[in-house]
């Protein structure tokens, strides 16, 4: 057998050997997860809007934000200039907007961290109501809203302020723990 013939199978052997060595190399290689910079968003959205509908197909919630992003820690979704509007049977109920907000995915809490404005739309029974404060924590599961900051509220022509507030939507109770001041106009005649 001529040596040349040997060359072919030899080359084949070498190639196969090389291939298996390479394959083996691959299989034993530790896939090293490249850590993303925790301070930099994993993804970011600009001018986002989101709608949610109730079982009858009517608009229930409508969220718009100039920017939204999530950090690699997967715990929070951050929103800039967020405005959440809620509806019942398509009728506007109230809106909550803040310069910056953070939604904690596990806790299901929204942390409005910079100048919050809650607005209750006027209806045929009640005048419009507006509540302003620096920051607010909304627990979407317990349906509560809480702040320790100064809050200022208007209700038709009536107005007032307090240091801190805790609102429980399920029981319909609002507690104002400190420094309550209010100027109340008769709602029937004044709005």
């Amino acid at each position: 057998m001529k040596f040349r013939n040997l060359i072919f199978p030899l080359t084949l052997a070498l190639i196969l050997g090389g291939l298996s060595a390479w394959l083996e190399r691959i299989s034993t290689l530790d896939v090293e997860e490249v850590k993303l910079d925790p301070a930099k968003p994993q993804y970011s959205m600009e001018n986002l809007s989101a709608s949610r509908f109730d079982t009858s197909g009517s608009l229930k919630e409508y969220l718009i934000a100039r920017q939204g992003w999530q950090l690699p820690d997967q715990e929070n979704v951050f929103l800039q200039n967020a405005d959440l509007q809620t509806f019942i049977n398509g009728e506007p109920q109230y809106s909550v907007n803040g310069l910056s907000a953070r939604y904690h995915l596990k806790e299901k809490k929204v942390y409005f961290e910079h100048d919050v404005v809650l607005e209750k739309t006027e209806d045929n029974q009640r005048p419009a109501a507006i509540v302003k404060t620096k920051n607010l924590v909304v627990d979407t599961v317990a349906q509560t809203a809480q702040t320790n900051e100064l809050i200022e509220f208007t209700y038709g022509k009536s107005q007032g302020s307090a240091q801190g507030a805790f609102y429980d939507h399920k029981s319909g109770k609002l507690d104002l723990p400190k420094q309550v001041k209010a100027l109340i106009y008769d709602v029937k005649t004044s709005h």
């Binding site: 109770k173 209010a182 100027l183 106009y185 008769d186």
Partner: peptide, 24 residues
Amino acid sequence: RNQPISIEADSGSLDQKNQVTVFT
């Protein structure tokens, strides 16, 4: 009767369902 009512208190609570307000 036609004037606005001014209220000041250390704390307050409003029970919307039962329409009860307490100032303390």
